[in-house]
Write a protein that binds this DNA or RNA. Structure first.
Lengths: 206, 206
DNA sequence: TACTCATATGAACATTGTTCAATTTAACTC
DNA sequence: GAGTTAAATTGAACAATGTTCATATGAGTA
Protein backbone atom coordinates (compact mmCIF):
# COMPACT_ATOMS: atom_id res chain seq x y z
CA UNK A 1 0.00 0.00 0.00
CA UNK A 2 1.49 3.29 -1.11
CA UNK A 3 0.76 6.21 1.18
CA UNK A 4 2.65 8.64 -0.98
CA UNK A 5 -0.36 9.36 -3.09
CA UNK A 6 0.55 10.55 -6.53
CA UNK A 7 -1.03 13.89 -7.30
CA UNK A 8 -3.88 13.37 -9.68
CA UNK A 9 -4.47 15.65 -12.62
CA UNK A 10 -7.45 16.96 -10.72
CA UNK A 11 -5.41 17.89 -7.68
CA UNK A 12 -2.74 19.47 -9.85
CA UNK A 13 -5.24 21.82 -11.44
CA UNK A 14 -6.92 22.46 -8.13
CA UNK A 15 -3.68 23.39 -6.39
CA UNK A 16 -2.45 25.40 -9.33
CA UNK A 17 -5.61 27.42 -9.37
CA UNK A 18 -5.57 27.87 -5.63
CA UNK A 19 -2.11 29.38 -5.89
CA UNK A 20 -3.19 31.60 -8.76
CA UNK A 21 -6.14 32.97 -6.83
CA UNK A 22 -3.95 33.79 -3.85
CA UNK A 23 -1.28 35.38 -6.04
CA UNK A 24 -3.77 37.63 -7.79
CA UNK A 25 -5.55 38.55 -4.57
CA UNK A 26 -2.29 39.35 -2.84
CA UNK A 27 -1.25 41.48 -5.78
CA UNK A 28 -4.44 43.51 -5.69
CA UNK A 29 -4.29 44.02 -1.93
CA UNK A 30 -0.64 45.02 -2.10
CA UNK A 31 -1.22 47.42 -4.97
CA UNK A 32 -4.57 48.98 -4.19
CA UNK A 33 -5.51 47.98 -0.67
CA UNK A 34 -7.92 45.47 0.79
CA UNK A 35 -10.93 47.58 0.03
CA UNK A 36 -10.25 47.32 -3.69
CA UNK A 37 -10.31 43.52 -3.67
CA UNK A 38 -13.33 42.19 -5.60
CA UNK A 39 -14.29 38.57 -6.29
CA UNK A 40 -15.01 39.23 -9.93
CA UNK A 41 -11.67 40.96 -10.50
CA UNK A 42 -9.86 38.00 -8.99
CA UNK A 43 -11.86 35.46 -10.98
CA UNK A 44 -11.34 37.33 -14.23
CA UNK A 45 -7.60 37.76 -13.66
CA UNK A 46 -7.23 34.08 -12.83
CA UNK A 47 -9.43 33.08 -15.74
CA UNK A 48 -12.02 31.14 -13.80
CA UNK A 49 -15.54 31.66 -12.57
CA UNK A 50 -16.48 33.31 -9.32
CA UNK A 51 -17.94 29.99 -8.24
CA UNK A 52 -14.49 28.41 -8.32
CA UNK A 53 -13.21 30.96 -5.85
CA UNK A 54 -16.02 29.97 -3.53
CA UNK A 55 -15.41 26.25 -4.04
CA UNK A 56 -11.81 26.73 -3.06
CA UNK A 57 -12.16 29.16 -0.14
CA UNK A 58 -15.72 28.88 1.12
CA UNK A 59 -16.27 32.61 1.11
CA UNK A 60 -14.37 35.74 0.23
CA UNK A 61 -13.07 36.19 3.74
CA UNK A 62 -11.41 32.83 3.21
CA UNK A 63 -9.27 34.29 0.44
CA UNK A 64 -8.32 37.32 2.51
CA UNK A 65 -7.51 35.23 5.56
CA UNK A 66 -5.32 32.90 3.55
CA UNK A 67 -3.40 35.85 2.12
CA UNK A 68 -3.04 37.21 5.65
CA UNK A 69 -1.83 33.85 6.89
CA UNK A 70 0.86 33.82 4.25
CA UNK A 71 1.79 37.40 5.04
CA UNK A 72 2.49 36.61 8.67
CA UNK A 73 4.38 33.50 7.57
CA UNK A 74 6.56 35.54 5.25
CA UNK A 75 7.10 38.10 7.99
CA UNK A 76 8.09 35.40 10.46
CA UNK A 77 10.54 33.92 7.98
CA UNK A 78 12.17 37.31 7.53
CA UNK A 79 12.36 37.90 11.27
CA UNK A 80 13.87 34.46 11.84
CA UNK A 81 16.60 35.41 9.41
CA UNK A 82 17.88 38.14 11.70
CA UNK A 83 21.38 37.20 12.99
CA UNK A 84 21.40 36.07 16.60
CA UNK A 85 25.03 36.34 17.53
CA UNK A 86 24.74 39.56 19.47
CA UNK A 87 21.43 39.79 21.36
CA UNK A 88 21.43 43.59 21.39
CA UNK A 89 22.09 43.72 17.68
CA UNK A 90 19.39 41.11 17.23
CA UNK A 91 16.80 43.31 18.92
CA UNK A 92 17.66 46.21 16.67
CA UNK A 93 17.67 43.85 13.72
CA UNK A 94 14.21 42.54 14.52
CA UNK A 95 12.79 46.04 14.77
CA UNK A 96 14.45 47.22 11.57
CA UNK A 97 13.49 44.11 9.68
CA UNK A 98 9.93 44.65 10.77
CA UNK A 99 10.17 48.23 9.56
CA UNK A 100 11.53 47.15 6.19
CA UNK A 101 8.87 44.50 5.78
CA UNK A 102 6.10 46.87 6.82
CA UNK A 103 7.35 49.63 4.53
CA UNK A 104 7.64 47.20 1.63
CA UNK A 105 4.25 45.58 2.13
CA UNK A 106 2.22 48.20 3.93
CA UNK A 107 -1.12 47.19 2.44
CA UNK A 108 -0.57 43.51 3.18
CA UNK A 109 0.27 44.29 6.79
CA UNK A 110 -2.77 46.52 7.08
CA UNK A 111 -4.91 43.71 5.72
CA UNK A 112 -3.46 41.47 8.40
CA UNK A 113 -4.10 43.86 11.27
CA UNK A 114 -7.21 45.69 10.13
CA UNK A 115 -9.43 43.12 8.51
CA UNK A 116 -12.55 42.41 10.55
CA UNK A 117 -14.85 39.46 10.08
CA UNK A 118 -18.48 39.69 9.05
CA UNK A 119 -21.01 39.74 11.88
CA UNK A 120 -19.21 38.77 15.02
CA UNK A 121 -17.35 35.76 13.76
CA UNK A 122 -13.99 35.51 15.47
CA UNK A 123 -10.75 36.10 13.66
CA UNK A 124 -9.06 32.71 13.14
CA UNK A 125 -7.06 31.74 16.17
CA UNK A 126 -4.17 30.31 14.24
CA UNK A 127 -3.42 33.65 12.57
CA UNK A 128 -3.55 35.54 15.84
CA UNK A 129 -1.32 32.88 17.33
CA UNK A 130 1.18 33.29 14.50
CA UNK A 131 1.26 37.04 15.05
CA UNK A 132 1.84 36.49 18.75
CA UNK A 133 4.59 34.00 17.96
CA UNK A 134 6.26 36.50 15.66
CA UNK A 135 6.09 39.12 18.39
CA UNK A 136 7.67 36.61 20.76
CA UNK A 137 10.82 36.53 18.68
CA UNK A 138 12.34 39.16 20.93
CA UNK A 139 12.12 36.66 23.76
CA UNK A 140 15.38 34.73 23.21
CA UNK A 141 17.65 37.78 22.95
CA UNK A 142 15.94 39.37 25.94
CA UNK A 143 16.50 36.22 27.98
CA UNK A 144 20.20 36.40 27.18
CA UNK A 145 20.35 40.05 28.12
CA UNK A 146 18.35 39.69 31.33
CA UNK A 147 19.42 36.26 32.63
CA UNK A 148 18.11 36.92 36.12
CA UNK A 149 14.62 37.98 35.11
CA UNK A 150 11.49 35.88 35.41
CA UNK A 151 10.72 34.09 32.16
CA UNK A 152 7.06 35.08 32.25
CA UNK A 153 8.05 38.70 32.65
CA UNK A 154 10.39 38.45 29.70
CA UNK A 155 7.61 36.97 27.61
CA UNK A 156 5.40 39.92 28.46
CA UNK A 157 8.25 42.33 27.84
CA UNK A 158 8.84 40.83 24.42
CA UNK A 159 5.23 41.31 23.40
CA UNK A 160 5.18 44.80 24.86
CA UNK A 161 8.34 45.91 23.11
CA UNK A 162 7.30 44.48 19.79
CA UNK A 163 3.81 45.96 20.10
CA UNK A 164 5.37 49.33 20.82
CA UNK A 165 7.58 49.07 17.76
CA UNK A 166 4.54 48.04 15.76
CA UNK A 167 2.66 51.10 16.93
CA UNK A 168 5.47 53.46 16.04
CA UNK A 169 5.89 51.96 12.58
CA UNK A 170 2.21 51.52 11.88
CA UNK A 171 1.42 55.16 12.65
CA UNK A 172 4.68 56.42 11.23
CA UNK A 173 3.92 54.88 7.87
CA UNK A 174 0.39 56.22 7.87
CA UNK A 175 0.29 58.21 4.70
CA UNK A 176 -0.12 61.93 4.66
CA UNK A 177 0.16 62.94 8.36
CA UNK A 178 3.28 64.99 7.80
CA UNK A 179 4.75 61.86 6.20
CA UNK A 180 7.54 60.60 8.36
CA UNK A 181 10.23 59.69 5.80
CA UNK A 182 11.42 56.05 5.98
CA UNK A 183 14.96 56.96 6.94
CA UNK A 184 13.66 59.16 9.71
CA UNK A 185 11.43 56.37 10.92
CA UNK A 186 14.43 54.07 11.07
CA UNK A 187 16.18 56.58 13.29
CA UNK A 188 13.06 56.97 15.38
CA UNK A 189 12.96 53.22 16.02
CA UNK A 190 16.64 53.11 16.86
CA UNK A 191 16.37 55.92 19.35
CA UNK A 192 13.34 54.34 20.88
CA UNK A 193 15.25 51.12 21.41
CA UNK A 194 18.29 53.03 22.69
CA UNK A 195 16.21 54.62 25.39
CA UNK A 196 14.21 51.56 26.30
CA UNK A 197 17.17 49.21 26.52
CA UNK A 198 18.95 51.77 28.63
CA UNK A 199 15.94 51.79 30.92
CA UNK A 200 16.21 48.03 31.15
CA UNK A 201 19.82 48.37 32.18
CA UNK A 202 21.10 47.04 28.89
CA UNK A 203 23.99 48.83 27.23
CA UNK A 204 22.92 50.05 23.80
CA UNK A 205 25.05 49.64 20.71
CA UNK A 206 26.23 53.16 20.28
CA UNK B 1 -27.70 94.34 9.87
CA UNK B 2 -27.91 91.39 12.19
CA UNK B 3 -25.18 88.81 11.68
CA UNK B 4 -26.47 86.55 14.41
CA UNK B 5 -28.77 84.72 12.05
CA UNK B 6 -31.73 83.19 13.78
CA UNK B 7 -31.93 79.46 13.10
CA UNK B 8 -34.70 78.79 10.65
CA UNK B 9 -37.12 75.92 11.07
CA UNK B 10 -35.38 74.26 8.15
CA UNK B 11 -31.98 74.47 9.78
CA UNK B 12 -33.39 73.21 13.06
CA UNK B 13 -34.71 70.05 11.43
CA UNK B 14 -31.60 69.66 9.36
CA UNK B 15 -29.31 69.89 12.35
CA UNK B 16 -31.54 67.72 14.45
CA UNK B 17 -31.54 64.99 11.85
CA UNK B 18 -27.81 65.32 11.30
CA UNK B 19 -27.24 64.67 14.99
CA UNK B 20 -29.64 61.73 14.94
CA UNK B 21 -27.86 60.09 12.03
CA UNK B 22 -24.51 60.44 13.75
CA UNK B 23 -25.87 59.14 17.04
CA UNK B 24 -27.36 56.06 15.45
CA UNK B 25 -24.30 55.41 13.32
CA UNK B 26 -22.00 55.78 16.31
CA UNK B 27 -24.18 53.41 18.30
CA UNK B 28 -24.03 50.73 15.62
CA UNK B 29 -20.27 51.05 15.17
CA UNK B 30 -19.71 50.94 18.91
CA UNK B 31 -21.97 47.94 19.39
CA UNK B 32 -21.31 45.80 16.34
CA UNK B 33 -18.30 47.24 14.58
CA UNK B 34 -17.81 49.35 11.49
CA UNK B 35 -18.43 46.45 9.14
CA UNK B 36 -22.00 46.12 10.43
CA UNK B 37 -22.90 49.71 9.62
CA UNK B 38 -25.46 49.86 6.80
CA UNK B 39 -27.10 52.93 5.26
CA UNK B 40 -30.55 51.39 5.35
CA UNK B 41 -30.24 50.45 9.01
CA UNK B 42 -29.25 54.00 9.88
CA UNK B 43 -32.05 55.53 7.80
CA UNK B 44 -34.66 53.23 9.28
CA UNK B 45 -33.51 53.83 12.86
CA UNK B 46 -33.54 57.58 12.30
CA UNK B 47 -36.86 57.43 10.52
CA UNK B 48 -35.81 59.05 7.27
CA UNK B 49 -34.99 57.93 3.77
CA UNK B 50 -31.59 56.80 2.60
CA UNK B 51 -31.52 59.82 0.35
CA UNK B 52 -31.51 62.14 3.34
CA UNK B 53 -28.35 60.50 4.64
CA UNK B 54 -26.73 61.25 1.31
CA UNK B 55 -28.02 64.80 1.24
CA UNK B 56 -26.47 65.40 4.61
CA UNK B 57 -23.14 63.62 4.24
CA UNK B 58 -22.49 63.25 0.53
CA UNK B 59 -21.67 59.58 0.77
CA UNK B 60 -21.53 56.90 3.39
CA UNK B 61 -17.87 57.49 4.08
CA UNK B 62 -18.95 60.98 5.09
CA UNK B 63 -20.98 59.54 7.96
CA UNK B 64 -18.13 57.32 9.11
CA UNK B 65 -15.61 60.12 8.89
CA UNK B 66 -17.80 62.46 10.89
CA UNK B 67 -18.21 59.83 13.61
CA UNK B 68 -14.44 59.34 13.58
CA UNK B 69 -13.89 63.08 13.81
CA UNK B 70 -16.08 63.23 16.90
CA UNK B 71 -14.32 60.21 18.37
CA UNK B 72 -10.94 61.88 18.20
CA UNK B 73 -12.48 65.06 19.59
CA UNK B 74 -13.92 63.17 22.54
CA UNK B 75 -10.60 61.45 23.06
CA UNK B 76 -8.75 64.75 22.99
CA UNK B 77 -11.15 66.25 25.51
CA UNK B 78 -10.55 63.35 27.86
CA UNK B 79 -6.80 63.59 27.45
CA UNK B 80 -6.87 67.34 28.08
CA UNK B 81 -8.60 66.61 31.37
CA UNK B 82 -5.56 64.81 32.73
CA UNK B 83 -4.07 66.81 35.64
CA UNK B 84 -0.87 68.63 34.74
CA UNK B 85 0.58 69.45 38.13
CA UNK B 86 3.18 66.72 38.14
CA UNK B 87 4.60 66.08 34.65
CA UNK B 88 5.54 62.48 35.43
CA UNK B 89 2.10 61.76 36.78
CA UNK B 90 0.67 63.49 33.73
CA UNK B 91 2.47 61.11 31.39
CA UNK B 92 1.13 58.10 33.23
CA UNK B 93 -2.28 59.73 33.32
CA UNK B 94 -2.30 60.31 29.57
CA UNK B 95 -1.40 56.70 28.88
CA UNK B 96 -3.95 55.33 31.31
CA UNK B 97 -6.66 57.67 30.12
CA UNK B 98 -5.97 56.50 26.60
CA UNK B 99 -6.24 52.92 27.79
CA UNK B 100 -9.55 53.59 29.51
CA UNK B 101 -10.94 55.36 26.49
CA UNK B 102 -9.76 52.65 24.11
CA UNK B 103 -11.12 49.87 26.31
CA UNK B 104 -14.44 51.66 26.64
CA UNK B 105 -14.80 52.47 22.95
CA UNK B 106 -12.74 49.84 21.18
CA UNK B 107 -14.88 49.70 18.06
CA UNK B 108 -14.97 53.48 17.70
CA UNK B 109 -11.20 53.68 17.99
CA UNK B 110 -10.80 50.88 15.47
CA UNK B 111 -13.06 52.74 13.11
CA UNK B 112 -10.82 55.77 13.54
CA UNK B 113 -7.59 53.94 12.86
CA UNK B 114 -8.66 51.21 10.47
CA UNK B 115 -11.15 52.79 8.12
CA UNK B 116 -9.77 53.13 4.61
CA UNK B 117 -11.23 55.27 1.88
CA UNK B 118 -12.65 53.97 -1.38
CA UNK B 119 -10.24 53.89 -4.32
CA UNK B 120 -7.21 55.91 -3.39
CA UNK B 121 -8.92 58.94 -1.97
CA UNK B 122 -6.88 60.34 0.89
CA UNK B 123 -8.05 60.17 4.46
CA UNK B 124 -9.13 63.70 5.47
CA UNK B 125 -6.18 65.73 6.63
CA UNK B 126 -8.00 67.38 9.49
CA UNK B 127 -8.70 64.05 11.19
CA UNK B 128 -5.11 62.90 10.84
CA UNK B 129 -4.03 66.26 12.16
CA UNK B 130 -6.31 65.91 15.17
CA UNK B 131 -4.86 62.48 15.92
CA UNK B 132 -1.38 63.89 15.66
CA UNK B 133 -2.35 66.76 17.94
CA UNK B 134 -3.73 64.32 20.48
CA UNK B 135 -0.51 62.36 20.34
CA UNK B 136 1.37 65.61 20.89
CA UNK B 137 -0.21 66.03 24.30
CA UNK B 138 2.79 64.37 25.87
CA UNK B 139 4.87 67.25 24.62
CA UNK B 140 4.33 69.76 27.45
CA UNK B 141 5.13 67.38 30.31
CA UNK B 142 8.15 66.08 28.44
CA UNK B 143 9.43 69.61 27.95
CA UNK B 144 9.20 70.19 31.68
CA UNK B 145 11.02 66.94 32.39
CA UNK B 146 13.73 67.47 29.79
CA UNK B 147 14.30 71.23 29.87
CA UNK B 148 17.64 71.01 28.08
CA UNK B 149 16.45 68.93 25.15
CA UNK B 150 15.81 70.22 21.66
CA UNK B 151 12.15 71.08 21.16
CA UNK B 152 11.96 69.27 17.83
CA UNK B 153 13.35 66.16 19.44
CA UNK B 154 10.78 66.36 22.20
CA UNK B 155 8.04 66.67 19.62
CA UNK B 156 9.25 63.51 17.95
CA UNK B 157 9.63 61.79 21.30
CA UNK B 158 6.07 62.66 22.20
CA UNK B 159 4.72 61.11 19.04
CA UNK B 160 6.96 58.09 19.43
CA UNK B 161 5.98 57.45 23.01
CA UNK B 162 2.30 57.86 22.36
CA UNK B 163 2.48 55.68 19.24
CA UNK B 164 4.20 53.01 21.29
CA UNK B 165 1.50 53.17 23.94
CA UNK B 166 -1.09 53.01 21.18
CA UNK B 167 0.52 49.86 19.77
CA UNK B 168 0.62 48.13 23.14
CA UNK B 169 -3.01 48.95 23.88
CA UNK B 170 -4.31 48.32 20.39
CA UNK B 171 -2.79 44.84 20.22
CA UNK B 172 -3.41 44.14 23.89
CA UNK B 173 -7.12 44.73 23.46
CA UNK B 174 -7.31 42.62 20.34
CA UNK B 175 -9.92 40.07 21.23
CA UNK B 176 -9.15 36.42 21.58
CA UNK B 177 -5.34 36.21 21.47
CA UNK B 178 -5.03 34.95 25.02
CA UNK B 179 -7.05 38.01 26.03
CA UNK B 180 -4.84 40.30 28.04
CA UNK B 181 -7.14 41.32 30.91
CA UNK B 182 -7.63 45.10 31.26
CA UNK B 183 -6.00 45.28 34.67
CA UNK B 184 -2.99 43.42 33.35
CA UNK B 185 -2.80 45.79 30.41
CA UNK B 186 -2.78 48.73 32.79
CA UNK B 187 0.18 47.22 34.59
CA UNK B 188 1.87 46.52 31.27
CA UNK B 189 1.56 50.16 30.28
CA UNK B 190 2.84 51.36 33.63
CA UNK B 191 5.86 49.12 33.48
CA UNK B 192 6.53 50.20 29.95
CA UNK B 193 6.55 53.83 31.03
CA UNK B 194 8.65 53.03 34.10
CA UNK B 195 11.35 51.56 31.91
CA UNK B 196 11.19 54.16 29.21
CA UNK B 197 11.24 57.16 31.52
CA UNK B 198 14.15 55.60 33.37
CA UNK B 199 15.93 55.30 30.04
CA UNK B 200 15.29 58.98 29.48
CA UNK B 201 16.84 59.75 32.82
CA UNK B 202 13.53 60.67 34.40
CA UNK B 203 12.75 59.34 37.85
CA UNK B 204 9.59 57.25 37.76
CA UNK B 205 6.83 57.55 40.30
CA UNK B 206 7.40 54.37 42.24
C1' DT C 1 -16.66 3.21 -24.56
C1' DA C 2 -19.76 4.03 -21.03
C1' DC C 3 -20.57 5.33 -16.57
C1' DT C 4 -19.88 7.94 -12.24
C1' DC C 5 -19.03 11.61 -9.50
C1' DA C 6 -16.21 15.49 -8.19
C1' DT C 7 -15.47 19.97 -9.97
C1' DA C 8 -16.37 24.17 -12.67
C1' DT C 9 -19.57 27.25 -14.42
C1' DG C 10 -22.18 31.50 -14.63
C1' DA C 11 -26.77 33.04 -14.49
C1' DA C 12 -29.69 34.30 -10.90
C1' DC C 13 -30.16 36.07 -6.42
C1' DA C 14 -29.15 38.90 -2.10
C1' DT C 15 -27.24 42.70 -0.01
C1' DT C 16 -25.88 47.18 0.08
C1' DG C 17 -24.07 51.73 -1.69
C1' DT C 18 -25.72 55.51 -4.88
C1' DT C 19 -28.56 58.41 -7.88
C1' DC C 20 -32.27 61.39 -9.28
C1' DA C 21 -36.96 62.60 -11.03
C1' DA C 22 -40.96 63.51 -8.57
C1' DT C 23 -42.92 65.17 -4.37
C1' DT C 24 -43.24 67.73 -0.24
C1' DT C 25 -42.43 71.66 2.53
C1' DA C 26 -40.40 75.75 4.54
C1' DA C 27 -39.71 80.50 3.39
C1' DC C 28 -41.05 84.44 1.15
C1' DT C 29 -44.04 87.88 -1.45
C1' DC C 30 -48.00 90.47 -2.11
C1' DG D 1 -53.61 83.87 3.79
C1' DA D 2 -53.03 82.41 -1.11
C1' DG D 3 -49.63 81.92 -4.36
C1' DT D 4 -44.78 81.43 -5.68
C1' DT D 5 -40.28 79.73 -5.29
C1' DA D 6 -36.48 77.26 -3.91
C1' DA D 7 -34.70 73.88 -1.09
C1' DA D 8 -35.14 69.58 1.25
C1' DT D 9 -37.07 64.86 1.18
C1' DT D 10 -38.39 60.77 -0.71
C1' DG D 11 -37.98 56.09 -2.36
C1' DA D 12 -37.95 53.57 -6.44
C1' DA D 13 -34.57 52.38 -9.63
C1' DC D 14 -29.84 51.52 -10.49
C1' DA D 15 -25.05 49.90 -9.69
C1' DA D 16 -21.67 47.26 -7.51
C1' DT D 17 -20.55 43.28 -5.30
C1' DG D 18 -20.90 39.01 -2.32
C1' DT D 19 -23.23 34.39 -2.58
C1' DT D 20 -25.76 30.33 -4.20
C1' DC D 21 -26.99 26.39 -6.92
C1' DA D 22 -28.91 23.83 -10.96
C1' DT D 23 -26.48 22.47 -14.82
C1' DA D 24 -22.51 21.24 -17.67
C1' DT D 25 -17.97 19.49 -17.96
C1' DG D 26 -14.41 16.32 -17.65
C1' DA D 27 -11.28 13.25 -14.93
C1' DG D 28 -11.25 8.74 -13.09
C1' DT D 29 -12.68 3.95 -13.61
C1' DA D 30 -14.50 -0.53 -15.19
Amino acid sequence: MNNVQEESLRDQKKNRRRRQILEIARGIIAAKGLRSLKVRDVAEAVGCSVGSVYNEFGDFDGVILTVNRETVQALTARLRGVPAEDPVRQLYGLAETYLDFFAGHANLLRSLFEHRMEDDRPYPDDILQMVMDAFALMHPPLVRLLPDADDVKIALLSRTLFSAVHGIISLGLEERMVAVPPQMLRQQIEQFLDVHLKGLGILPLR
